[in-house]
Simulated assay, not measured.
Amino acid sequence: MQLREARQLSLAEQLADLAVEALIDEADLTPKPALVDRRGSGAHRDLSLGLMHASALALWPMFREMAEAAGEAGAIDQPLREALGRIGRDGEAQMLATTGGVNTHRGAIWALGLLVAAAALEPDDCIPAALALRAARIALIEDRQAPTPDSHGARMARRYGARGAREEAQLGFPTLLLHGLPRLQASRAAGAGEAHARLDALLAIMAELVDTCVLWRSGLPGLNSMQRGARAVLDAGGCASLAGRRRLRLLEADLLRLNASPGGAADLLAACLFIDRVGGLSGSH
């Protein structure tokens, strides 16, 4: 008996695949300073690589549903924004059920959910700037059904006047477009291996981002150490150089000492990997 030929995936399923793959690839990337990776749990006592994988896989139905909602809406408007908010809250509940209440990907749900919807709206125009602009237009619409934000990131944004995940999206992901993605492409062009290029992209994000996860765990001293240390790695030649790797070890030791984990930067790296790949879907649906 021959196996049936696998059916072609719908656009929504392809986008959900790319989003989950981006989350898993971010989790697997090693060595990330003070973050969960193949070596261990970094600065986190309640996280593990297996938990990150399980969380990412549990979010696949949510990403597919978001893409389907955007495709059916066909336009950026209040009903779409509120549908995405409802789907996102349901997805977060499924994530927490899967992880036993541990917040693994709340920030990534926001960033990747917007980008998935933006890609589904106009799959033939997924160049990074256009994709980020559509995501920003969605993010700028008020979700009248959403509860008042009270996440760690929202509290840090209020305390320090920092730009949290919500504002980063509403501005069109400037840290990602101006720093993360260009560094990923530049490191590849310079001959760095893919893992080194992705680590360089993470560090480029860390060097610029006011990471509310770091602020929550270690305040301004942690944030300053993260940004200064990430720049030092890149200035030393990046993760593909011996001097850069030495600087990376020093950065990680400093962040672990401060219990500072750059979770916001990790979420943006996953978004960066998604944007980097999604352009290949044009014409395939």
Score class of each variant (00 low, 15 high):
136 A>W: 08
136 A>C: 05
136 A>Y: 00
137 R>T: 07
137 R>A: 09
138 I>D: 07
138 I>P: 00
138 I>S: 09
138 I>A: 07
139 A>K: 03
140 L>D: 13
140 L>H: 10
140 L>F: 04
141 I>F: 10
142 E>G: 06
142 E>P: 02
143 D>A: 10
143 D>C: 10
143 D>N: 15
144 R>H: 14
144 R>M: 15
144 R>W: 05
144 R>Q: 15
146 A>D: 11
146 A>L: 12
146 A>G: 00
146 A>P: 06
146 A>I: 09
147 P>N: 11
147 P>I: 13
147 P>C: 12
148 T>R: 15
148 T>G: 11
148 T>E: 14
148 T>W: 11
148 T>D: 14
149 P>F: 08
149 P>I: 08
149 P>V: 06
150 D>P: 11
150 D>S: 15
151 S>K: 03
152 H>N: 14
152 H>F: 11
152 H>L: 14
152 H>I: 07
153 G>S: 11
153 G>D: 03
153 G>Q: 03
154 A>T: 02
154 A>M: 08
154 A>L: 10
156 M>N: 06
156 M>E: 15
157 A>E: 05
157 A>Y: 03
158 R>G: 05
158 R>N: 03
159 R>N: 11
159 R>P: 06
159 R>T: 15
159 R>G: 12
159 R>L: 15
160 Y>L: 11
160 Y>P: 12
161 G>P: 01
161 G>T: 00
161 G>E: 03
161 G>Q: 02
162 A>W: 04
162 A>L: 09
162 A>V: 09
162 A>F: 08
162 A>S: 13
163 R>W: 14
164 G>L: 09
164 G>W: 08
164 G>P: 05
165 A>G: 15
165 A>P: 03
165 A>Q: 02
165 A>V: 12
166 R>T: 15
166 R>I: 15
166 R>G: 10
167 E>P: 05
167 E>Q: 14
168 E>C: 04
168 E>G: 02
169 A>F: 03
169 A>N: 08
169 A>P: 05
170 Q>H: 03
170 Q>W: 07
171 L>V: 00
171 L>C: 04
171 L>I: 10
171 L>T: 01
171 L>D: 11
172 G>F: 05
172 G>L: 01
172 G>Y: 02
172 G>K: 01
172 G>W: 02
173 F>M: 03
174 P>W: 05
174 P>I: 04
175 T>H: 13
175 T>V: 13
175 T>A: 11
175 T>N: 12
175 T>P: 01
175 T>D: 14
176 L>Q: 01
176 L>F: 00
176 L>G: 02
176 L>I: 06
176 L>N: 01
177 L>N: 02
177 L>E: 06
177 L>V: 00
178 L>T: 00
178 L>Q: 12
178 L>P: 04
179 H>R: 07
179 H>T: 03
181 L>R: 10
181 L>T: 08
181 L>S: 07
181 L>E: 05
181 L>N: 06
181 L>H: 07
182 P>Q: 03
182 P>F: 01
182 P>A: 01
183 R>E: 11
185 Q>R: 15
185 Q>T: 12
185 Q>K: 14
186 A>V: 11
186 A>D: 13
186 A>W: 08
187 S>D: 01
187 S>R: 04
188 R>V: 15
189 A>H: 06
189 A>Q: 12
190 A>Y: 04
190 A>L: 10
190 A>M: 10
191 G>C: 00
191 G>P: 01
191 G>D: 06
192 A>N: 02
192 A>K: 00
192 A>L: 06
192 A>C: 08
192 A>Y: 04
192 A>P: 01
